[in-house]
Nucleic acid binder design. Structure first.
Lengths: 248, 248
DNA sequence: CGGGCTCTTGACTCAGCTCAAGATTTGTGG
DNA sequence: CCACAAATCTTGAGCTGAGTCAAGAGCCCG
């Protein structure tokens, strides 16, 4: 589909700085673990990647599935979740563009993963990526940093699930969205909300009805405003942040 | 205090296999990250370690403190927790002997850490341990695995905090204790419970009173029996496991 | 053996859940 | 482009599991 690596490696300096092919136009490269790779490394990785689309609601991986593939999210939103035998669901996190999907060390996913909307993945064979991780310490370090960040977020969410009120939880949710995917300035933000009310509820340990009531209340308080069903405007981010921590 | 590393390295093969000094008699070496180190590496690490005791209730680290020290837990129990501005507390995990205390990558602790009972730590300067991590990929790998396991446990706990009933939470707590520190056989287990009812409550997202009521109920059901205030016998571990997942 | 803990139990309250109607949005086919 | 069915979301009314408040029981340690 495109020129061989040899040409680029032998080419002028400028060519060596710029990745070729799909990676060159990848919108999430700077946000993903690929950002720590040199052009040569990127080309090697590119050669072992494949792209795949998942439609809304499609299951991407099952819990405890011993997995062959891991991936970067190119676009779309993924929900990661756990289930109890009777069907109760807890969403443990969402993945957005640039995020990494996969258990790099354990070999098994600790959660299910499902496409919330149309999701585009850049997939790698897990064993081959692990080889690269062994060969490139900076790649391992980067994936370690990723896991550390995921852990930090999980700990914050434990505080939310164990100790926050419904209002605080819903406020925290929109703060999280603003911080991760929002168009922010100091006081306001516009966020896309691709997930359903019931996904939000399963993320916050609440019911759909409670989430809906809390959102209505935040709208009445002038902190939130709808801009179409799946786009929301946060009118006062600092106040929302304070609400998320329980300080009124 | 003991012979130099050079002697051991030049000595007979048997000496090279056995660490010297404190590490030789360390009860948690095989459970800690030290288990992946060669004798020579262990000696190097030993030279930069120091031991310290913390008394019950003593604060070991503050959240967001940029930290100089990380540690292995030699003995005792540590609670890791987060606070809301108004004092609400969520315990995010307990550390027991052999566990690692510290944020290896971020440089900052995401939680407070406090001694539950008398705690003995084997401490390292964070920067110097990070240097060793850079030099010894197997050490970095081991600490990465540690973080992965911590993350898996956090995700399980999110399911508990978001979706389990009080009965299921308390059952899950004793199953966790049995799995991590219990004297187990297939059907029963004896576990030490060093933490207070209110610590258990703060770990489970409940109140002390609810925890106490649920424990009484499990005792009445014959699943639990007291063996002194801080030692408990689990009389039917499989049934307790089922209760923890909500299957009656 | 008494003072100060922690833990247990009881009685009552309430935040969030359940159940049930409507309202709004979305998708589809003519 | 509109109509209409299906899905999602909102709102209301009443219920309930866990919280709050309060009293009493055990336990530990001088």
């Amino acid at each position: 589909m495109r020129m061989g690596g040899a040409t680029a490696e032998q080419g002028c300096l400028r060519l060596k700085q710029v990745p070729t092919g799909r990676c060159a136009v990848c919108g999430v490269r700077q946000a993903s673990f690929c950002s720590v790779l040199s052009t040569a490394e990127l080309q090697q990785l590119h050669a072992m990647s494949s792209q795949k689309i998942f439609e809304p609601g499609e299951l991407i991986v099952e819990e405890d599935a011993s997995v062959r593939q891991v991936a970067n999210v190119l676009s779309g939103t993924i929900k990661l979740f756990k289930l109890l035998p009777d069907g109760r669901q807890q969403i443990t996190g969402f993945l957005f563009g640039g995020d990494f999907l996969g258990p790099m060390l354990s070999g098994e996913y600790a959660t299910f993963a499902e496409a919330v909307n149309r999701v585009e993945l850049c997939m790698f064979d897990q064993d081959r990526l692990r080889e690269r991780m062994d060969a490139w310490p900076h790649l391992e370090r980067r994936l370690f940093e990723d896991a550390t960040q995921t852990l930090d977020r999980a700990l914050d969410w434990m505080l939310l699930l164990g100790r926050k009120t419904a209002t605080e939880r819903v406020a925290s949710f929109f703060v999280m969205l603003a911080d991760r995917v929002g168009e922010k300035n100091d006081a306001t933000a516009v966020v896309e909300v691709p997930m359903s009310r019931s996904d939000i509820a399963d993320y916050l340990g609440l019911t759909m009805e409670t989430v809906s009531r809390q959102i209505s209340q935040l709208k009445r308080a002038g902190l939130l405003a709808a801009q179409g069903q799946h786009v929301l405007e946060i009118r006062d981010l600092p106040t929302l942040r304070r609400r998320a921590e329980g300080s009124q």
